[in-house]
């Protein structure tokens, strides 16, 4: 069923990458085994240490590399969109797909329902839904299989809407060229400080729903300062899908 990604062979580790990190570590601590075990071993038992040096992300990395190769072969630029639930990813993509028609398509991940894909298809573009069930993020393997359903003729942009979650999706490279993290004005200026990891990996931070900024007392300067603190290399844009303000700068960034 899956001959090109190896998912039918979960025990095959023959081509995993070995990552070697030689930098110093500041603090090391020991989370001991906090449970009893039936076959308690003597503390004096002679031990042998075996070096392994394998990344838990090795398999995802391999699939992400495959996706990257696919994007390159098809001449596509891929964007991974991340945010908390409801920050406006689908609304932004509805407008964006419409604008870029017929050169854009989307893959969208949710725990349940096809709702977002149905909304996105109404723009006239292809949209493939991934329902992850209990999984709180997309991984490269899920995307690899969703790509099989995309017709790439004339396509230049592929958007991947991740599961609404500011924690888990940060860990998974999907093979994308650019990471976009959305922060809506309604969710608080200190979100970047609370979830620094996801913001740190962003190429672009989009402040969304700016039409609501005044109503919710959004402290723009604080938000900008917090984003710059945790994502010093990211570009920042502000927009409202509802009024269309700031959309041109977003389209220009996509094209650049």
């Amino acid at each position: 069923m899956c001959d090109h990604c190896g998912c039918g062979h979960p025990h095959d580790h023959s081509h995993e990458h070995n990552h070697n990190h030689d930098h110093s570590h500041e603090h090391s601590h020991n989370h001991g085994d906090g449970h009893d075990h039936a076959h308690a071993h003597a503390p004096s038992e002679p031990m042998r240490t075996i070096d392994v040096r394998k990344s838990a992300m090795a398999q995802n990395q391999r699939h992400a590399d495959q996706n990257r190769g696919w994007f390159r072969a098809k001449g596509l630029t891929a964007f991974n969109l991340l945010s908390s639930p409801g920050a406006g990813k689908t609304a932004l993509l509805e407008a964006t797909l419409k604008h870029l028609l017929p050169h854009a398509a989307a893959i969208v991940g949710d725990l349940q329902t096809e709702n977002d894909a149905i909304r996105l298809r109404a723009s006239g573009a292809q949209a493939v839904q991934i329902t992850t069930g209990a999984t709180c993020h997309l991984d490269a393997h899920m995307v690899l299989h969703a790509l099989e359903k995309i017709t790439t003729d004339g396509l230049k942009f592929l958007f991947i809407e991740n599961v609404g979650n500011l924690v888990c999706p940060a860990s998974y490279d999907l093979g994308e060229h650019r990471r976009v993290v959305l922060l809506s004005v309604t969710e608080g200026e200190d979100k970047p400080l609370k979830y620094p990891v996801i913001f740190h990996h962003a190429d672009l931070v989009l402040i969304t729903k700016c039409d609501l900024a005044e109503a919710v007392g959004f402290q723009r300067e604080d938000a900008l300062k917090n984003i710059r603190q945790v994502a010093p290399r990211a570009k920042i844009l502000e927009l409202s899908v509802k009024t269309g303000a700031g959309m041109d700068a977003w389209f220009a960034w996509l094209a650049g």
Partner: peptide, 20 residues
Amino acid sequence: TDGELRGGCELDLISIEVPD
């Protein structure tokens, strides 16, 4: 503030211990 990230994203199994 635009330093290039060179480490800190890892989740690696470094080594294991087994009885000798």
